[in-house]
Amino acid sequence: TNFTTRQLTELEKEFHFNKYLSRARRVEIAATLELNETQVKIWFQNRRMKQKK
């Protein structure tokens, strides 16, 4: 998935405060950013892996 700059900014901002999202928060973010819930979930999984390295 190619994310827009706005989407990436918002996802990174959320990640800064929360490494893990509740389902409710994931649904909320997905709706706000016009993404589906799975895209948000996978982005967070990938971002956590990236941070571990």
Rank of each mutant, 00 (worst) to 15 (best):
Q45M: 09
W43M: 00
Q45I: 06
H16F: 07
V40N: 00
L33E: 03
K41T: 12
R23G: 07
N2K: 13
E12I: 01
R25H: 05
L8K: 07
E10T: 11
T32E: 13
M49A: 13
Q45R: 08
L21Q: 06
F44V: 02
N18W: 02
F44N: 05
L11A: 01
W43E: 04
T38N: 12
I42H: 12
R6A: 14
Q7Y: 02
A31P: 03
W43V: 03
T9W: 07
A24W: 06
W43Y: 01
M49W: 05
N36E: 13
N18E: 06
E10A: 12
E28N: 09
R48K: 08
Q7F: 01
K41Y: 04
T4R: 01
R23P: 14
E34S: 12
R48I: 11
V40L: 03
K52L: 13
F3D: 04
R23I: 09
L21D: 10
Q39M: 10
H16E: 14
N36Q: 14
T4A: 00
I29C: 10
F44I: 00
T1W: 07
L21V: 10
K19T: 07
N46L: 08
L8I: 12
M49S: 07
M49T: 12
H16N: 09
E28I: 04
L11V: 03
W43Q: 03
L11S: 08
N46P: 00
A31L: 10
L33Y: 06
S22P: 06
K53M: 07
I29G: 01
N18H: 11
R47Q: 07
E12Y: 01
F3L: 13
A31H: 09
L11Q: 00
R6I: 10
Y20R: 12
K41H: 13
Q39N: 02
L33F: 00
L21P: 15
F15Q: 00
I42Q: 11
E12G: 02
N18K: 13
Q45D: 10
A31D: 09
R23Q: 13
T4I: 01
E34G: 15
K50A: 13
R48Q: 10
H16S: 13
H16W: 02
N2Y: 07
K19S: 14
R23C: 08
K41V: 13
R47N: 00
Q45A: 11
K52T: 13
K13R: 13
K50C: 09
A24Y: 06
E37C: 07
N2L: 06
I42S: 10
K52N: 14
N2E: 15
T9S: 13
K19F: 00
I42M: 11
E12H: 00
A30K: 01
Y20H: 12
I42V: 12
F17R: 15
L21T: 06
R23D: 13
R26W: 03
L11C: 06
F17T: 14
T9Q: 10
R6N: 12
K53T: 11
F3Y: 08
T32M: 14
M49Q: 13
I42K: 10
N36D: 14
L35I: 07
N18T: 07
N36T: 15
Q51Y: 13
F44E: 02
E34C: 11
V27R: 11
V27W: 05
A31F: 01
W43N: 00
S22D: 11
H16C: 13
E34R: 14
L11R: 02
W43L: 01
A24L: 08
L21R: 02
K53L: 08
A31E: 15
R25G: 01
K41P: 02
T4K: 03
S22H: 00
K50T: 12
L21G: 01
T1A: 04
I29W: 02
E28T: 06
R47L: 01
E10D: 04
T1P: 07
L8T: 08
E34D: 13
E14V: 06
A30S: 05
T5I: 12
R47Y: 02
E12D: 04
R26C: 14
M49Y: 10
F15E: 01
F17I: 15
W43H: 01
L35Q: 00
N36F: 02
H16T: 15
V40W: 00
F17K: 15
A24S: 12
Q51K: 06
L8G: 04
E10H: 11
F15I: 00
E28H: 06
A31V: 05
A24M: 10
S22G: 08
L21A: 14
K13H: 04
N36R: 08
E28G: 07
A31I: 05
K50Q: 15
I42G: 10
T32G: 09
R26N: 08
N2H: 12
E34V: 05
N18V: 01
R23L: 08
T5W: 08
E10W: 02
R26F: 07
L21I: 11
T1R: 09
T1G: 12
H16K: 10
S22F: 02
I42Y: 09
S22M: 00
V40P: 03
L8D: 07
R47F: 04
F17C: 12
T5P: 12
I42L: 10
Q7E: 03
E34Y: 04
K52Y: 14
V40K: 03
L33V: 03
V27G: 12
V40E: 02
K50Y: 09
W43I: 05
A30F: 00
T9I: 10
F17D: 11
V40R: 03
R48A: 14
Q51A: 13
R6Y: 14
L8R: 05
N46R: 08
S22N: 10
K13S: 04
I29R: 03
Q45C: 02
T32S: 13
L8N: 09
F3C: 04
L11K: 00
T4F: 00
L35Y: 00
R47H: 03
A24D: 10
K19H: 13
V40M: 01
K50N: 15
K53S: 15
K41A: 15
Q39G: 01
I42N: 15
E10I: 11
M49D: 12
T4S: 08
T9Y: 09
Q45P: 05
N46F: 01
K53G: 08
K13I: 00
F15H: 07
T32V: 07
N46M: 10
F44H: 02
L33W: 05
L35F: 07
K41Q: 14
A24Q: 13
E28P: 00
E34K: 13
L33S: 04
R6W: 15
K50W: 11
E12S: 04
T1I: 11
V40I: 09
E34T: 05
T5G: 11
F15A: 05
E34I: 01
Q7V: 05
R26E: 10
V27K: 12
Q45L: 07
Q45N: 10
T9H: 13
R25M: 04
V27I: 13
R47T: 04
W43F: 06
V27D: 04
N46A: 09
T5Q: 13
E37V: 06
T32C: 10
Q51P: 08
R6D: 13
F17Y: 12
E28W: 05
F3V: 02
T9N: 13
F44G: 02
S22C: 06
F44W: 15
V40C: 01
R48T: 11
A24H: 08
L35P: 01
R48H: 09
T32A: 13
N18P: 00
E12R: 03
Q7K: 01
L33I: 02
Y20N: 11
N46E: 15
L35A: 06
K50P: 08
Q7P: 01
K19M: 11
R26A: 15
Y20K: 13
W43P: 00
T5C: 09
R26S: 15
E10M: 11
I42P: 05
A30T: 01
F17W: 08
